[in-house]
Nucleic acid binder design. Structure first.
Lengths: 345, 345
DNA sequence: GAATGTAATGCAACCGGTTGCATGTCAAGC
DNA sequence: GCTTGACATGCAACCGGTTGCATTACATTC
């Protein structure tokens, strides 16, 4: 009763009851109250019931910070990404959140803005209050990452460092399928619109394109779009249209989308006279025309990474884990038969 | 010297030195070490220098959790959004992060998935370890929000509750400008493609459309797209094309983009025979054709919200704040003169 | 040279939980 | 009836910082 706030007064922040108040009010020791919440099996059912009842009435809720101080378990994890605003990340973030939520964990989000120094700063701020870290597309150098990994369980996404748990989105199969798809459509001369040279993903994609094209006797040229974005993709259109290729595979969907726009501006019709393939499948059907792309399951990466982190936090996994996520080609409407006049160049 | 890790051994998690170890190593009391970091002006320069030097050598870094326990300042804030994956939010999140970073704060991100119960759960988990909260497009009922606001500084985005600090993206001016723009182009009969009825933004936009259209003698019909998304926008195209209107204003860019796709599928040319206006300006020029839209400065909302939160956390602001962010129309290529045959319906 | 004031540092309690160990209670076993 | 053990609970130290107050050292003033 006394807790019902009368309409009107009561402006100061409602004071949160502590374990001591619950102890006094229910006539037991602080230790017993603590155990009623964290180790109820040690107590009589009756005691637990009584304590919880009193706690409820008082509005008591255990203080996470205090608990963390004595146990070292904060119930928090950190997720650091290179750019929240890149459409690749939101689904990943969302999935990671979901998984963490299910485990009752809170997640800190960090945005490194592609800057290693910033990323290092964030790790420093987080590491004291989290039980584990996920670094997505980390730009830190290997030495730093290794050091952090000795302090806390740490999982990498799309970064391949031996000895550290990592989940890698393996776009090679999807890219290979894309080349095969273009081959079947009669394209014999294509372009790879490449992303950041330091990016693991870009290296992997570029290599997959080269390998598969060579196998099929398809000629490939590389055209840069750096940093990868809608704008750089659009700018690449001129060079690509002039090169004589009949199709292009872009580093990611954003670049592909820019390329579509650039081609449209040059009156190159897609897919009638030119084919475009994206990568990541983060734009769905929202491009015009809907983009044929390598679906990279970026959401799964977030989910799996947090899952691995959890098992590392609990079990203390033995041995390193290198989790590969598969990819596949999604065919939409931006690819079509190579135009006759250009076929075989 | 003894701390230099020999290359080789040393596999166990590097133990973090505590204030006591620094105290012993530098021959001062724990209190002095503490002050060297949090109140250096109380100490001799010489002492501060010595202590910090030792601390550096040991790799000491103050434990945030312990500090929070005794001071109540955790250095954390929480940001809860209704859907990370909605393109409206990433720029907002990014800006909020940036602002928090500058203040040395860590940010928890929560994703309510449009579910009030989930949102409530998240708030409960966060509130014990943050100094303040930002709720963007909160789906909680007013009573809950008020209660949380008594416990911690709290700022709302796009939610208008009297007495609680809030930042509102005022799209009315931009929407009015859009109607004026359509009016000038000769459109006399248009559609509003509406979003969630419970959304403050939707109510505001719908009202602005009605008011301005009425003022200009333009006839408006409402067509729902719920939940607002690319798909519902696309589906709305049929009904809209059949209605005889010559232009549509969509609840947000995503819906507008879907509408563009739907119209294209019906062979309705935009902007030649139909005009489309979006809202939020989160897609930039990436649609085809580039979308005329009401630019809503969603990034600013994140920045301002955290700014207000900070001042509330520090100063304890007096009086309520209702911060409005302006909007303006960005004209791109999805709007054009009303087709003659339809003009004047 | 003693009294006074001020600045630098130390002592110890405190924040709100957790947990190893000691204590107390009660029932079963001999 | 006394020993033994299992179980429930309490005591008190601890996690790693912060901070009010006491103490010490030193400079200033008369």
């Amino acid at each position: 009763m006394k807790r019902d706030s009368e309409s009107g007064g009561e402006r100061r922040p409602a004071v949160v009851p502590t374990i001591s108040q619950v102890a006094k009010a229910s006539g037991v020791s602080r230790a017993t109250v603590s155990r009623a919440f964290s180790r109820p099996e040690m107590l009589t059912e009756e005691t637990v019931r009584r304590v919880k009842e009193v706690a409820d009435k008082l509005g008591y809720v255990p203080n996470q910070v205090a608990r963390a101080l004595s146990t070292g378990r904060h119930g928090n994890v950190a997720l650091i990404v290179s750019d929240v605003a890149n459409p690749f990340f939101p689904p990943l973030i969302r999935a990671a959140q979901l998984r963490a939520d299910q485990a009752g964990l809170c997640v800190f989000l960090g945005n490194s803005d592609e800057d290693p120094a910033r990323e290092e700063l964030l790790v420093g701020r987080f590491i004291g209050q989290v039980e584990g870290l996920v670094l997505a597309s980390s730009r830190l150098d290997e030495e730093h990452i290794r050091r952090h990994a000795t302090r806390r369980p740490l999982v990498l996404i799309n970064r391949d460092i031996e000895g550290i748990t990592r989940v890698l989105i393996d776009t090679a199969p999807g890219v290979a399928a894309a080349i095969a798809h273009l081959d079947e459509l009669g394209h014999r001369y294509i372009a790879y619109v490449s992303g950041p040279t330091t990016s693991w993903s870009n290296q992997q994609r570029r290599n997959a394109v080269r390998r598969e094209a060579e196998k099929r006797g398809i000629k490939v040229i590389a055209v840069p779009a750096r940093p990868p974005s809608y704008d750089t993709g659009r700018l690449a259109a001129t060079q690509i249209a002039a090169s004589g290729v009949t199709a292009a595979i872009a580093f990611d969907d954003l670049v592909a989308q820019g390329l579509l726009a650039g081609l449209a501006a040059l009156d190159v019709e897609v897919p009638k006279s030119f084919s475009v393939v994206g990568c990541d499948d983060v734009l769905g059907e929202t491009t015009y025309p809907p983009l044929t792309t390598v679906s990279a399951r970026c959401a799964d990466a977030g989910d799996v990474a947090v899952g691995l982190l959890l098992s590392q936090m609990n079990g203390g996994v033995s041995g390193e884990i290198r989790h590969k996520l598969n990819s596949h080609l999604v065919i939409r409407a931006s690819t079509g038969p190579a135009p006759a006049k250009r076929r075989g160049r």
